[in-house]
């Protein structure tokens, strides 16, 4: 069994028996997609809500919700998935330092979650589970065999959705 590590602003697709894993999600959002018929899993580690925030010409696709999610869907379709069988789960989007919440940059967690939801809605993909917000970091692992998402936090241990 292989565990494929997805870094910050990165994305990837896996088939059984592999797992996809990303560590230390704070205000970033881990978006996972799963086609349970074709058993194809995808994961993106989204850092910012919109690519319009980019200040330079060069764009890292995996960094922004509005570019990462469409690209991840493309990769999954290329690997044999169908969007009508694909569902999404979200984790992350925390506010690590809660009381700094007035500043727009500091409210990035909730904004990331909103942007991911919007991008998924545009792609007609249903969100079946969500563990977002709060003020804790998360590490997530998606099993391509069954689509189960394991979420680990420092204070609340491990849960599966």
């Amino acid at each position: 069994m292989e565990i494929i590590k997805i870094g910050m602003a990165d994305l990837g697709v896996a088939k059984p028996p592999s797992k996809l894993r990303t560590t230390g999600l704070g205000s970033c959002v881990g978006v996972v997609l799963y086609d349970h018929i074709h058993k194809i899993a995808g994961m993106a580690h989204v850092m910012l809500p919109e690519s319009s925030l980019a200040k330079s010409g060069e764009l890292t696709i995996g960094k922004y919700a509005d570019t990462a999610i469409p690209h991840l869907i493309q990769l999954m379709v290329k690997a044999g998935a169908e969007t009508r069988h694909t569902v999404a789960k979200l984790a992350g989007g925390a506010q690590m330092f809660a009381f700094l919440g007035n500043n727009d940059t500091m409210r990035i967690g909730p904004r990331n979650v909103e942007a991911c939801k919007l991008a998924l809605k545009d792609a007609h993909i249903k969100i079946v589970a969500e563990d977002t917000g709060g003020n804790c970091g998360r590490t997530i692992e998606l099993d391509a065999t069954n689509g189960i998402l394991q979420i680990r936090t420092v204070n609340q241990g491990v849960k599966e959705v």
């Binding site: 602003a9 560590t23 704070g26 200040k55 925390a94 330092f97 970091g137």
Partner: peptide, 17 residues
Amino acid sequence: DMAGAILSYGLIALGQA
């Protein structure tokens, strides 16, 4: 908390550039 989750907070502004 996890170092990755905490430090990524300081990288957001840079992420735009």
